[in-house]
């Protein structure tokens, strides 16, 4: 890993020297906001029906997350603790409004497809959660790395859902037909229930792959079936 040098960049106002790469990868993999923390389910289930929507929603959320984390971290000495949540929401709502305008200026169609969910980024608990849990008592640099990691994790997760749903739902990826014109799309995958099904599939995969080492070593399946035999 050549990123080792970057790890020393972490400023240590809070005393802990976590390498930047760890801060970043934590959000992408170990504490993935969707697959591990199961946060922000509303946009995850609602706007992951196509790969394009998922990427757009993920990018918008990531932009808001990065900016809000930076703003909160910079203002952390200023904001009184009694009104911190109000202030965070104020900052996040402003950023979301700006992102909403930018998306509208970029593409009317995309704005239509995402609908109210852009505005609903305000109440995505991932963003407020990161502000409260990390940015409020960390240096801007650490908050930035954390936001980038979490944002990337969210984007990746949304894309994982969106790609599978679009592929099964309409046989295409990014609007380009992949499975041929004869493919019969599964409409349920484009509807909210499909989001639950695909999310369940990914969670199952994650918990299977990410099983703790001792469970693998102990041979969980064997133990489980032993219990079954005893019963």
């Amino acid at each position: 890993m050549s990123m080792g040098a970057a790890g020393t960049q972490t400023a240590a106002t809070d005393g802990s020297a976590v390498p930047a790469t760890d801060e970043f990868l934590k959000g992408v993999w170990k504490q993935n906001p969707v697959f591990v923390q199961v946060l922000g389910m509303c946009p995850v289930l609602a706007v992951s029906n196509t790969a394009t929507n998922a990427l757009a929603m993920g990018s918008a959320t990531m932009a808001v997350l990065v900016l809000s984390n930076l703003a909160v971290s910079c203002l952390r000495q200023v904001i009184p603790p009694q009104v911190r949540i109000v202030t965070y929401i104020l900052i996040i709502a402003t950023l979301v409004t700006i992102v909403d305008h930018l998306i509208q200026a970029w593409s009317v169609e995309l704005h239509r497809a995402l609908g109210a969910f852009i505005s609903l980024i305000v109440v995505n608990c991932l963003i407020l959660g990161r502000a409260e849990a990390l940015a409020a008592h960390s240096s801007p640099l650490r908050a930035l790395w954390d936001a980038l990691g979490m944002g990337t994790g969210f984007l990746l997760a949304l894309f994982c859902l969106g790609a599978v749903r679009e592929l099964i739902g309409s046989g295409s990826l990014f609007g380009v037909s992949v499975l041929g014109p004869q493919y019969q799309g599964w409409v349920v995958m484009m509807l909210p229930p499909g989001g639950f099904f695909v999310l369940a599939g990914w969670l199952m995969l994650f918990s299977w792959v990410g099983r703790p080492a001792h469970a693998v070593a102990a041979g969980l399946p064997d133990r489980a079936s032993e219990l079954g035999r005893k019963a």
């Binding site: 918990s207 469970a215 102990a218 969980l220 399946p221 489980a224 079954g228 035999r229």
Partner: peptide, 19 residues
């Protein structure tokens, strides 16, 4: 006549759920 092993381990996903 027993529930297949792979079924349990995939669906159960954690050692605590069985007990």
């Amino acid at each position: 006549g027993t529930f297949r092993r792979t079924g349990v381990s995939v669906l159960g996903s954690g050692d605590s759920s069985a007990a």
